[in-house]
Design a binder for these strands. Structure first.
Lengths: 107, 107
DNA sequence: TTAATCCATCGTAATATTACAATAAATTAA
DNA sequence: TTAATTTATTGTAATATTACGATGGATTAA
C-alpha cells in the first residue's frame, strides 16, 4: 500500500490536506517565514539563511510551488519567490473556519 | 537520507511542523471534523463513517494523539476520543499569527 | 467461564519523503 | 566565445508513511 485513498474523501478534505502537507516541514515553514519577512525572496538567500544544501532548498521550493502556496518569477540570473496571495488567503480562511468550528464541551 | 534535519530549525518551527503534519492527511482531517461534529467520538463510529479499515483508523488516531491534537478516554468497552482544547487553541493562535504576518506587497 | 465486542499492536508490502552529490540549463559578465 | 553565477534536475540512499490482515488484550454480556 503506502497510497492514500484519495477517492473516499471530499474534494475539500483532499485539497486542505495537500496544502497542510506542503507546510508540514520545518524547512518549508522557515522558507515561508523568510519570504514573508523580506517580502520577496531569492533561492540563494535561503541557502545561506537555512542550513540545507541548494538542491534540498530547490526541492522544498518546488513543493511549495506545486501546492500553489508560492510563485516564482525569473529575475535575471536568479528567481524571485513570493507568496501566492490568493491561495494564502483561501487557506487562511479555510483553516479559520475549521479551527473555529470546534466548540469545547465534552471531556 | 530521508531524515529531517530537526536540529537546524527553531523549536517553534519544529513543533508547528509536527502539528501540521498530523493534520496533513484527508483521513485525519475527516476524523477531526467528525469528532468536532458529534462533540465526542468513538473509533468504531469512525470505521463506519470513513471507508478505511479499523487498524488504519486506529493508526491515524494514534498519530493525532501523539501530536497532542486529541485525547482518548476509556469508556467501558470503547474509547472516547476528543479534541485537546489546549493544543487546539495553541495551534489556532500560532497559525493565526503566521497567516496574518503576511502583508501582500510585491509580485 | 465463555462468548462477544471494541480497540491496539504487529508484521508487512507498496509508496512517498528527505537530503545531497553530480550535473545540466539558463542567464549575465568579461 | 568563455567564464561565472544561479537555480533546476537527476540519481540515489536512508527513512517515513499508508493501508490492512492477523492477532492480542481488555471489558462487558450471557
Amino acid at each position: 500500500m503506502g497510497l492514500t485513498k484519495t477517492e473516499i474523501f471530499t474534494e475539500e478534505q483532499n485539497s486542505l490536506a495537500v496544502l497542510l502537507k506542503a507546510m508540514a516541514h520545518p524547512a518549508r515553514i522557515a522558507i515561508l517565514q523568510q519570504i514573508i519577512k523580506v517580502n520577496a525572496c531569492i533561492c540563494g538567500d535561503l541557502v545561506d539563511e537555512l542550513g540545507l544544501a541548494q538542491p534540498t532548498i530547490s526541492q522544498h521550493l518546488k513543493e511549495l510551488k506545486n501546492a500553489g502556496l508560492i510563485q516564482g518569477t525569473i529575475e535575471g540570473v536568479s528567481v524571485c519567490y513570493c507568496i501566492n496571495p490568493i491561495v494564502w488567503d483561501q487557506l487562511k480562511d479555510q483553516l479559520g473556519v475549521f479551527f473555529n468550528s470546534y466548540n469545547p464541551a465534552c471531556c
